[in-house]
Amino acid sequence: MILQTTDSTMAEAARRAPDLMGPTWICALDQTAARGRRGRPWVNPQGNFAASLVLRPEGLPAQAALRSFVAALALRDALAAVTGRPEALGLKWPNDVLLKGGKVAGILLESTGLGGRIDHLVIGIGVNLVAAPAATEVEPGAVAPVSLAAETGTTIAPEDFLNQLAPAYDRWERAFAADGFAPIRTAWLQGATRLGQTLIARTARDEITGTFTDVDSDGQLVLETAQGPRRIAAADIFF
Results as ranks from 00 to 15, higher is better:
Pro45Asn: 03
Ala105Gln: 09
Ile208Phe: 09
Leu60Glu: 15
Ala17Ile: 04
Ala14Pro: 05
Trp25Val: 10
Glu139Cys: 09
Trp172Glu: 04
Ala182Phe: 05
Leu129Cys: 04
Lys92Met: 06
Ala11Thr: 14
Ile107Gln: 00
Ala177Val: 06
Thr83Arg: 02
Ala135Met: 13
Gly219Ala: 09
Ser147Ile: 02
Leu189Thr: 04
Gly36Arg: 09
Arg67Met: 10
Pro57Ile: 04
Val97Tyr: 00
Asp214Tyr: 11
Arg16Asn: 00
Ala71Gly: 05
Glu159Asn: 10
Ile107Leu: 07
Ala166Phe: 07
Met10Tyr: 04
Gly219Gln: 04
Ala132Gln: 08
Val222Asp: 08
Leu129Gly: 00
Val122His: 01
Gly90Val: 03
Leu75Thr: 04
Ala166Pro: 01
Thr136Gly: 14
Arg35Ser: 11
Leu148Tyr: 06
Arg76Phe: 02
Gly39Arg: 11
Lys92Gly: 00
Glu12Cys: 14
Pro61Tyr: 08
Ala78Arg: 00
Ala28Arg: 04
Asp206Ser: 13
Thr193Lys: 03
Ile107Thr: 04
Arg15Lys: 12
Glu224Cys: 06
Asp30Arg: 15
Ile118His: 00
Ser111Ile: 05
Pro41Leu: 10
Val54Met: 07
Glu151Cys: 08
Thr209Asp: 08
Pro183Asn: 07
Gln4Ser: 11
Gly228Ile: 10
Gly101Asp: 13
Asp206Arg: 12
Thr24Asn: 02
Thr155Glu: 15
Ala65Val: 10
Ala134Gly: 15
Cys27Thr: 15
Thr186Cys: 14
Asn163Asp: 15
Pro61Val: 09
Arg85Tyr: 06
Leu98Arg: 05
Val146Tyr: 01
Leu162Arg: 11
Leu73Ile: 14
Gly191Ala: 11
Glu12Leu: 15
Val54Gly: 03
Ser8Gly: 11
Gly90Phe: 01
Asp206Val: 07
Val127Pro: 01
Leu121Gln: 08
Arg40Lys: 14
Ala74Lys: 06
Gly113Gln: 05
Val222Pro: 01
Pro45Asp: 05
Ala149Leu: 15
Gly106Lys: 03
Gly191Tyr: 04
Leu99Ser: 02
Arg230Leu: 04
Asn95Gln: 02
Arg38Met: 13
Asn128Tyr: 06
Ala233Asp: 13
Leu29Trp: 07
Pro183Ser: 05
Leu89Phe: 05
Val70Arg: 03
Arg40His: 14
Arg231Asn: 02
Phe161Pro: 00
Ala28Trp: 02
Asp170Cys: 07
Ala11Ile: 09
Thr198Glu: 15
Ala204Asn: 09
Arg231His: 13
Thr136Met: 11
Trp25Gln: 03
Leu108Phe: 01
Phe49Asp: 01
Pro133Cys: 03
Leu20Pro: 01
Ala166Lys: 11
Gly191Pro: 00
Gly39Ser: 09
Gly101Cys: 02
Ile184Leu: 10
Phe238Leu: 14
Arg85Ala: 13
Thr186Tyr: 08
Val70Asp: 10
Gln63Thr: 12
Ile26Cys: 09
Ala134Met: 09
Leu98Ile: 04
Gly180Thr: 07
Thr152Phe: 14
Leu109Gln: 12
Ala105Ser: 10
Glu173Leu: 12
Asp77Leu: 01
Pro94Phe: 06
Leu99Met: 12
Leu60Gln: 12
Gly191Phe: 01
Ala150Leu: 11
Arg76Ala: 01
Arg37Gln: 15
Phe69Ser: 00
Ala168Arg: 02
Pro183Phe: 06
Ala50Tyr: 03
Ile125Trp: 03
Asp206Tyr: 05
Arg16Pro: 02
Leu195Ile: 12
Gly210Cys: 10
Ala34Val: 13
